[in-house]
Computed example of a mutant assay.
Amino acid sequence: MSARTAQAKINFQKMKTILTNKHISIETRRRALQCYIEPVLMYGCEAWTISKQFQNMLEATEMWFLRRMLRIPWTAKKTNERGLKEANKRRSLVRTIRKLQANFLGHVMRRGELEHLVTTGKFEGKRSRGRQREKIMDGLATWLGQGKVSDTLTAIKDRDLWRDMSANAYKQGT
């Protein structure tokens, strides 16, 4: 993740004259950020497992971009929420990644081949000692508001239901 963040920040610096120009509307600058910088950051995000710490890093990166676009120095006593209000924006990076993950997961699970086995994690053998790692399915089940992973797996089979569930979770911003 840190490599992705570094690459996105380097690309931001290359486009700094456009993205920090006060003569260009904030909406146009946000669209440029969304088109040219965020894809660099989100490359391969469908396979990421997003923990709370990882989510905080993504939100910090998103705010780094926004504060520089608005030219808010760190010494200014402005909170991130105030910066979001100035830009008339909500935090959307993590929600966008979760939506992409849900779309990808639905596609893979309906296909039902080797990817299905890898994603669900149903393999023979012993589990390792200690706390188990969080799986993509666990994070998406929580994001979608499903209690269990098994409920999520049954919802994936119905394409329209799955599309509606992921769209509703995206709109709610959970």
Rank of each mutant, 00 (worst) to 15 (best):
S2W: 11
T5P: 00
K9Q: 13
I10L: 06
N11H: 12
F12D: 00
K16W: 09
I18P: 01
K22H: 14
S25Q: 13
S25A: 14
E27P: 01
R31F: 03
A32Q: 08
A32M: 06
Y36E: 04
Y36M: 07
I37W: 01
P39M: 06
V40E: 09
V40G: 06
V40L: 07
L41M: 11
M42L: 13
Y43N: 10
Y43C: 11
G44F: 01
C45V: 02
C45D: 06
A47C: 10
A47T: 15
W48S: 05
Q53H: 11
F54A: 04
Q55N: 08
N56P: 01
E59K: 15
A60I: 02
A60F: 03
T61I: 02
M63I: 06
W64A: 03
R68H: 15
M69K: 02
P73W: 14
P73Y: 14
T75Q: 13
T75N: 07
T75F: 06
A76N: 12
K77M: 11
K78G: 00
K78H: 06
R82E: 09
R82Y: 09
N88P: 01
N88Q: 14
K89H: 13
S92M: 11
S92Q: 12
L93T: 10
V94D: 11
V94A: 08
R95F: 04
T96A: 10
T96H: 14
T96N: 15
I97K: 01
A102S: 11
F104I: 02
G106Y: 00
G106N: 13
H107A: 05
V108H: 13
R110T: 01
E113A: 13
L114A: 14
E115F: 05
V118P: 02
T119Q: 14
T120R: 15
K126N: 13
K126H: 12
R127C: 06
R127W: 11
S128M: 12
G130N: 09
Q132N: 09
E134P: 00
E134Q: 15
K135F: 05
K135P: 02
L140A: 08
A141Q: 10
A141I: 04
A141T: 09
W143A: 12
L144P: 11
G145P: 05
G145N: 05
G145D: 03
G145A: 10
G145H: 12
Q146E: 09
K148N: 10
D151M: 08
T152Q: 09
A155W: 08
A155F: 08
K157E: 07
K157M: 06
D158W: 12
D160N: 10
L161V: 05
W162I: 03
D164P: 00
N168Y: 05
Y170S: 04
Y170K: 11
Y170Q: 06
Y170V: 01
Y170F: 14
Q172F: 05
Q172D: 12
G173F: 09
T174G: 12
